[in-house]
Simulated scan of single mutants.
Amino acid sequence: MIEASLNGAPPALFFLDTGALFALNDDYAARLGIPTYGRTTGRTLYGEHPNLQGRVDRLTMGELTIEQVPAHTIPDEIRLTAPDGRQTQGAIGTSVLARFLATIDYPGRALVLRRDRRAAVRAEHTAPLWFLGDHFLLSHGTVNHLDRMVFFVDTGGGDIGFTAPRSTLDAAGIAVPADGGPHPVTAGRVTLGTAVRHDVPGLAGAFPDWFEHGFGFRIGGLPTHEFFRPYALTFDFAGMRILMGTSRE
């Protein structure tokens, strides 16, 4: 989570989510009087919902200000609660991060946005990066004994580290109850590029059915928040690679 100020308003809390664009909760956007210009339909784990398309004149994070930022609204129930009881008012996602060499430094508890998108970043692990549509980030990875497959890289997965379609979980030998609802599971070994994590907490039933083949090719899994927590996670949109290191420098 990160604090940000919109159009000079007092700072509010947002969650960082590479599975999202720049999104504001409906009630928060209304309170700030964010102008909107049209309506589309969004598809999330919460199902389909209307999105109002709009614009934020100024987005300020720390000492950095970005102007004229496209935004859209999301339902008010899509919120996270911080340890101090505050609730998030939206998501800062790929449409903001892609303007920079962006590092989500989990151990250092910092978001680092470098304007020099070719700056040197130290990393122990790398993975290829593809940009699909307006915000979907893809890479290559594996789970258990299976061959390499396409993964959707989404940092917004809360306290889990991996989810996947039922076909992947079954092939990987991960037992899933027959009712198809959300169930905690554990993936013995998950890789993303050269990064390897063991005994990764996962959630069966959280991967949207349409997402597996919805883009004309198969997406086999989704590494998320808990997978990345040991790393300073950098998205290099100039070199199209993901860097994972223990230091952000």
Rank of each mutant, 00 (worst) to 15 (best):
R197P: 04
H72I: 06
D27E: 09
P182Q: 12
A119E: 03
D27T: 14
D116P: 09
A120H: 12
S167F: 08
P165E: 09
V96C: 00
L21F: 06
A102D: 09
G173H: 14
P230V: 14
L64M: 09
R117T: 08
H140N: 13
D27G: 10
F217Q: 06
D134Y: 01
I2L: 13
R189A: 11
G54S: 12
Q53C: 13
L64R: 07
R218W: 04
F211W: 04
A71G: 06
H72Y: 15
I242H: 03
T163F: 07
L113A: 01
L222Q: 10
G33T: 02
M240S: 12
F22W: 03
P201F: 03
A120Q: 11
A187G: 08
R109N: 12
G42P: 03
H145G: 11
R39E: 15
V112S: 02
A172R: 07
R218Y: 07
A178I: 01
G181K: 12
E63G: 10
G181W: 04
V96A: 00
L203S: 10
A4K: 06
P184H: 05
L80V: 03
P35W: 02
M61V: 15
R148I: 04
D76M: 02
T142E: 14
E226K: 15
R43G: 11
R39L: 09
V69D: 06
T18E: 02
T224W: 08
F237K: 05
V185N: 02
V200I: 03
N144D: 12
N7P: 07
R55I: 08
T103Q: 02
D209F: 03
G85C: 02
R114E: 03
D27R: 14
I2H: 04
G33F: 03
R117G: 01
A175W: 05
G216Y: 02
A91H: 00
F131P: 00
R109G: 00
L243Q: 10
T40L: 06
P11W: 09
A195Y: 03
R218M: 04
A12P: 11
G156V: 05
T73G: 09
P230K: 15
T224H: 11
L203W: 09
P128H: 10
T18S: 13
R43H: 15
G221M: 00
Y106K: 02
N144W: 03
A204S: 14
D159N: 14
P177W: 08
L52S: 15
P83E: 00
Y37C: 01
A102M: 12
S139Y: 07
L80R: 09
G62D: 10
P177R: 13
S95G: 02
R55F: 07
G93R: 00
D76E: 04
G180P: 14
Q68A: 15
L45N: 15
R248L: 04
H225I: 00
T246E: 15
